[in-house]
Structures are given as structure tokens and as C-alpha cells.
Amino acid sequence: MANKQLDEMSFLDHLEVLRWHLVRATISIAIAATLAFIFKRFIFDVIIFGPTHMTFPTYEGLCKMSQFLGMSDTTFCAQEFPFIIQNRTVAGQFSAHIWTSIYAGFIISFPYVLYQLWSFISPGLKASERKNSRGFIIIASLLFFIGVLFGYYIVTPLSLNFLANYQISDQILNEFDISDVIALVRTSSIASGFVFELPIIVYFLTKVGLVTPQFLKKYRKFALVIVLILSAIITPPDIASQVIVAIPILLLYQVSIYISAVVVRNQTRKTTRENKKSTNKS
């Protein structure tokens, strides 16, 4: 019934429905951004600037690991970072407050934004397809938040530690602009969040026939190169950081192959059952 009503809707009707879904998603982001704006001390002092202190859990863990391996001369065990954070523009802090609140609002409200997107797409799917896609919002949101945490606790500290301790001359003092520090945390976290959506993307590409497990296996070597390039983009140019970031992405790629194989197997079984029913009827 829903599909029939959907077929009777004009293009402008679809745009109107999409507009209201976007409005509701935007309102949810605005509400979450307002909360983030109010709790600015927690957002900035604890979250944004957390990785700029050597008491951050990642540095403590890497320091203990380095000491266990007998690496005494490591920057992970320093008392503090050799840099200060500064603001060089009149409206710099206010702009940082506004935009950071918006990005935080997007991350917080991501499940609801995804729900609005799914509410617009799902009426166009068959009942069986909607049934097989149960749990999509929960799984996609969970993968996104795991990716954000990975970017925040792994990518950001590794990048910041490398860049803060990199020197071309002892005469140069590191005085990082507030916008650059925030951009590093934001890009690492949100980019990792979207990268971790790979299994979901592969699932839907397999459903529509654009991807097969054989295709993913055939181009695994090319995927490895792409993963290493991606790791080099979102991490500092040292091998250890790139390997740490590349490992979970490669695991996600392997999981995506398995998911694609499951989807193809289920589709094959469904086609076989339908063919048997057709044969019995005839």
C-alpha cells in the first residue's frame, strides 16, 4: 500500500517529503549543537584539548608499552607537549565555539539524522528488503561512533604527538592556532567515523548488484594500496601510525567481503525458492 501511494506521488511531492525530513534532521542537529554550545568548558577543556595533555589515556598506554619494550627515549612519556595554543584573530574563539558546537551537534544527533534519511528511503523498498534491513540504524550508528572514538583516541593523539615534536630547527617555537588544533581533532574523528561505515556501504552496494564478494577479493590488493594512502592522509607520515590506522580498516574490508558473501548467498537461496514455487505451480 505504501509503495502504491509512493508511486502516485509526483516529483514535487517527493521533494516536499525530503524537505521535511531534512528540516527535522537539521532541528535535531541544532538542539544538540545548542547543548554543546552551553557546555563549552566540557567540550573544549575535556574533549577538544584532552589530547593536548600528556595525561591523556592514549599517551599513558603508549608510554607503558614503550617502557615494556625497553624504549626509554620516547615522546609518549614526556611531561608536557612543546607547544602552546593561541588565538590570533578577533573573532577566532567565538567562531571556534560556534563551529565546534555544530560539528558536535552532528555527531551527537547522527542516529536521528540517519533515521530521517532511512525514513525517506525505506518506503521505496519492498517489504522483504525492509525486513532484511532491520537494525540498519543501530548498526550504522554503532559503527560511526566506534570510528569517531578510534579517530579521537588513536588517530588524533598519534598525529598530534608527531606534529608537536617534529622540528626542523631549535630556533622555532611551536605556537599552534586554535583553529588548526580543532580541525585536527574534528577531521580525524569524523573521517574515521565515516570510514567505519564501509561494511554498511558494501551491504547496500551488494544488494543492488554493484559489488560481489568475488569483486572485493579480486581487487583486495588495490584496496590495500588505497587503505595505505588513506592512512597516510589522516595520520602523520610515520610508518607506525599508518600501520595502526590501516589494521582496523583492513579488518573492516575483510568483514565487508563476508557481508557481501552472505547477501549474495541469501539472494541466491531466495531466487531458488521462487523458481521452485514457479515450477510447482506450472
Rank of each mutant, 00 (worst) to 15 (best):
Y103T: 06
P157T: 06
G124Q: 06
Q171E: 14
I139L: 11
L163I: 13
Y103L: 12
P248G: 15
A96Y: 03
V185R: 02
A140V: 08
L228Y: 12
I229K: 06
I121R: 01
I31F: 15
I98S: 08
Y219V: 03
D45I: 07
I27A: 13
A183V: 05
I27C: 07
F56D: 00
F49A: 07
S119H: 10
L125S: 10
Q67K: 11
L12T: 09
A261Q: 14
G151S: 08
L210F: 11
V225P: 08
R41M: 07
L210E: 06
S169Y: 04
M65V: 03
E80D: 14
Y258S: 15
W118M: 06
V208R: 07
L125W: 11
I31D: 00
I98R: 08
S28W: 03
M65F: 15
E129K: 10
S66Q: 05
L12S: 06
L184K: 07
M1Y: 12
L142P: 02
L12G: 03
V195G: 00
I85R: 09
I98A: 06
H97S: 10
E60F: 00
S128A: 14
N161L: 14
Q79T: 14
F94H: 08
V243E: 06
I244L: 14
A91K: 07
A164E: 09
R134W: 13
F215C: 05
Q254H: 08
F76K: 00
S72V: 11
F120K: 04
F37K: 05
L158W: 05
R220L: 12
I229Q: 06
T34C: 15
V255A: 13
E175N: 13
T206N: 02
T271K: 14
G50E: 03
F194I: 15
I172S: 02
I38V: 15
F76Y: 12
L22I: 15
I38N: 11
R134N: 12
E60S: 02
F83T: 02
Y115F: 13
S101Y: 04
H97T: 09
G151Y: 01
A2L: 15
A164Q: 12
L228H: 02
K4V: 10
S192E: 05
Q79C: 04
A261Y: 04
Y203P: 01
L15R: 10
F76T: 00
S95D: 07
F110M: 14
L252T: 09
T272P: 00
V148Y: 10
F222W: 12
P123H: 07
R130N: 11
M1K: 06
E60W: 00
A104V: 13
L210V: 05
I168D: 06
K217C: 02
K276R: 11
Q167G: 04
I84M: 12
F162V: 02
F176H: 08
S109W: 06
L114K: 11
